[in-house]
Amino acid sequence: MNRKHLLFTLVIFGLLMAVPSVVRDTFFLRVITEAILWIGLAISWDVLAGYTGYLNFGHGAFFGIGAYVTALLINLAHWPFLLALPVGGLAAGVVAAIAGIPTLRLKGAYFAIATWALARAIQQGALVMDITGGPDGMRLPPFLHPHFFYFLMLLTVAIIFGGYWFLFEKAPFGLKVKAIREDEQGAMSLGLNPSWIKLQAFVLSAIPTGILGGIYAYWITYIDPASVLGDLVTDQAVVMAVFGGLGTLIGPTIGAVIIFAFKTCFWAYLSDYQVLYLIILGGVIAVSVVFLPNGLWGTLSEYLRARRIMKNNTSAPRATDKGVRHV
């Protein structure tokens, strides 16, 4: 990322900071808050899927664990929200660390199945336990301040984005993770311990997800196993990331905004046909896997790069024509 990109990011962030002073309608503020939440969920799924190559179909479990742990600490231990929130994130991280040791040995579809099953087990756990309220879910003390949640969500996702950008794009860790994605066996001969690096990536994907779950719980004030531990959390994050473009941070961000905008319009105008939404979601993933294997952003940046190279080729080689070898 050069200076131009940094400036662009700061401008976007500044504009988003100004949104609440412009948008008076609480419904729209709520929509934008949720869009930002989905950006966070899509990028946190992508750091494992796109950068490390492990498709986690139980991502929603971390969201739910964060939500439930935060809710339990507030309701039962009477902790202040801002203290309960990081503990909720940490709990998600601990579960990832424990679950990751056996499951990260698996590859491809087997890892996807194992994480999916784990998420189902956790959902069932929340359904049968008394402490979580079973299928009735939990209510949290209401703190209905849309601006507070908007800024909290924006700041949290901005920190997640920035943290991921540093770790996965700037720091050596990102290269190590990509090496393991490309060739685990080969990476070992270069001094990388794949199990350890994958576990780190898994935990790094889980902690922010848990924190987002905690914010969601306190924001919506009501959670139940279907809403925060259901398949839909994972499925939407997956579709957003895949549609936007895996292995980048921008791709899932764009994907999250587009898919969420679509979902909101659909809900607002076609709420009688809710079942159609899932069908369309499935259709979008199928079509984008076939026609946009690199996602929207991947395809776009590939196209732009190709065009730049073409441009350079038509202008540059003239000067050094003698140096060009024709093979």
């Binding site: 290269l175 990509k178 994605r181 490309e182 080969g186």
Partner: peptide, 22 residues
């Protein structure tokens, strides 16, 4: 390795940097 498998999605430099990090 007999069957060479570079980290295909990365640049040549990045491939070598990964080893240098040790």
């Amino acid at each position: 390795f007999q069957v060479v498998k570079p980290f295909a999605g990365l640049t040549v430099l990045e491939n070598v940097v990964i080893a240098s990090l040790v």
